[in-house]
Design a protein around this nucleic acid. Structure first.
Lengths: 288, 288
DNA sequence: TATGGATTGGAATTATTATTTCATATTCCC
DNA sequence: GGGAATATGAAATAATAATTCCAATCCATA
């Protein structure tokens, strides 16, 4: 019999991800009942965090002592210390993304490698998504969709940083068979393209500070032709807000000098698919 | 003296928001020590969720019995049932986005309005971000960045759904003053553009199932010229994975038939900014 | 400033929960 | 198939934590 139990080189997992990896790693070499607990733990981490040894054991279909053996097998000295890891995970996850973002920025500045940069962009995106789901006004969304659903052609207007959103909108509208026109012209004919729009059409315009002058200029021109505009921008002082029939304020978090686009993307997709649905409903009604 | 204590009309708060409101409402009419607990509870909800009566009491600077009185004051029959509310809050917040996404899809299908569509896209984006932070391989990230940092010109290759990502990469590389070339040509000269690439350059190629044939064809051609490729795609069966020196598997959640781009975007930005940093470091070293 | 009621602190008590122990069952190897 | 090593179940035990109780204190009011 070799010296088993908590030997020196066996590191106790301190965070959930390490724990998860350890469990997955040993999964096959674990005894049946212990493996049963392991599977349950990974499937129901919340239960482990909050339950008592007895209640968890019952849910997992084992004895409380098996739970403790499972914990010891992993190097913890009891169920309680294993549970700490599951609780810490909830705390972490729940700690506001803003705080995490702060920490990540500091980390990246300190030169903590490229993973930190990646984490920063993920955090920025998550923060932006959280913000927009809190602040988006349902009524505006309805208004914008109604307005766009009535349009003969939807013009899509955005440059520079916002341009990727415009291309995705154009792609999605195309897939939904909704007539649309991305305002970009290699031949420098934007002004002429804009001139084709009529009040029966509509525009989705996207621009964030510092507002691309071309976007603003084209938005002004097009609004003067009486074409309704749905704008996505970042503040009520935005020049776009003045020309717009409906406008959305989207605050994207930034990291390393680049703003996230995730909130804008989500909104853009909701508008696009919303228009698609509205049109389907309308044409169904017309037939009936 | 009126009938105090747990009277009939005094509803016990079952969820955190109601509880919060109740506390805020009564804040002024509470005895000093109880108010002290109330303030602590709202400031440190996580501690209440996880701590023991004794530990929380110590942190809040009161006796354990005061905690229980606080709970009873609010209509609970003891500290334990008050604690349940704080725990439930963590569970809720943390309930996997996957489940929420399921629920939202059902809701949207049932025609629950456009807000449901929007929520669905937000949830899809969040799910994708969670997934990628779990699965991204740090070593691949390092490899890809080193490879791209050495390139004279970075070619960016993506069509259709992935095209927005390509435009954002091109924008960001441009802002960082890194020479790059987006492979898109209104004049149909893509093949010629591709032919200019040499082994001293590098490619970022992005394609998801169903893989745009043009992307695959161009990736093949360019890899045959000996140009190293960093690929972002969705499975190891992807044709892109074959041509790539380094490739990333990104699983984007979809909603209403459109996949999120948020994870891909985050990865793309990390690559871009990572390359920028690496180059700055390298040029600093050369000077020293 | 005296008095009654409300509030608080701290220890005693009770309840709950984790852990240990030991008998029994299972598995693996010779 | 026999026997050792390992795994499991169930109850006993130890530890921990919630609750209660009572004396001391505070505070408003007459």
């Amino acid at each position: 019999m070799s010296l088993d139990g908590p030997t020196m080189d066996e590191r106790v997992p301190r965070d959930f991800e390490t724990l998860r990896a350890t469990i997955l790693d040993r999964r096959d070499s674990l005894p049946k009942r212990i493996a049963q607990v392991a599977a349950y733990a990974l499937d129901n981490p919340d239960d482990i965090a909050f339950g008592t040894a007895a209640s968890i054991a019952a849910s997992a279909g084992v004895q409380p002592s098996t739970l403790i053996r499972f914990a010891q097998q992993l190097g913890f000295d009891g169920f309680t210390s294993l549970q700490q890891v599951f609780r810490e995970r909830l705390r972490e996850r729940n700690s506001s993304y803003d705080e995490r973002l702060q920490a990540l920025r500091a980390k990246a500045d300190a030169g903590a490698g490229h993973r930190a940069i990646f984490d920063g962009f993920v955090a920025a995106a998550s923060t932006s998504l959280n913000d927009i789901s809190r602040t988006l006004d349902d009524a505006h969304l309805e208004d914008a969709i109604s307005l766009l659903a009535k349009a003969q052609t939807i013009f899509v207007l955005a440059k520079r940083r916002s341009y990727p959103v415009a291309t995705y909108i154009a792609y999605a509208l195309g897939k939904l068979k909704i007539r649309n026109q991305l305002i970009e012209s290699a031949a420098g004919l934007n002004a002429e393209m804009v001139a084709f729009a009529t009040p029966a059409d509509a525009v989705i315009a996207i621009s964030f500070s510092p507002y691309a002058p071309a976007t603003i200029e084209e938005a002004r021109a097009i609004s003067e032709q009486g074409v309704p505009i749905v704008a996505i921008t970042d503040s009520s002082f935005s020049p776009l807000a003045q020309f717009a029939s409906v406008w959305f304020e989207v605050a994207e978090a930034d990291f390393a000098g680049f703003r996230s686009l995730s909130a804008t993307m989500a909104l853009a997709m909701a508008l696009t698919v919303g228009v698609g649905e509205k049109r389907r409903d309308a044409s169904r009604k017309r037939k009936a």
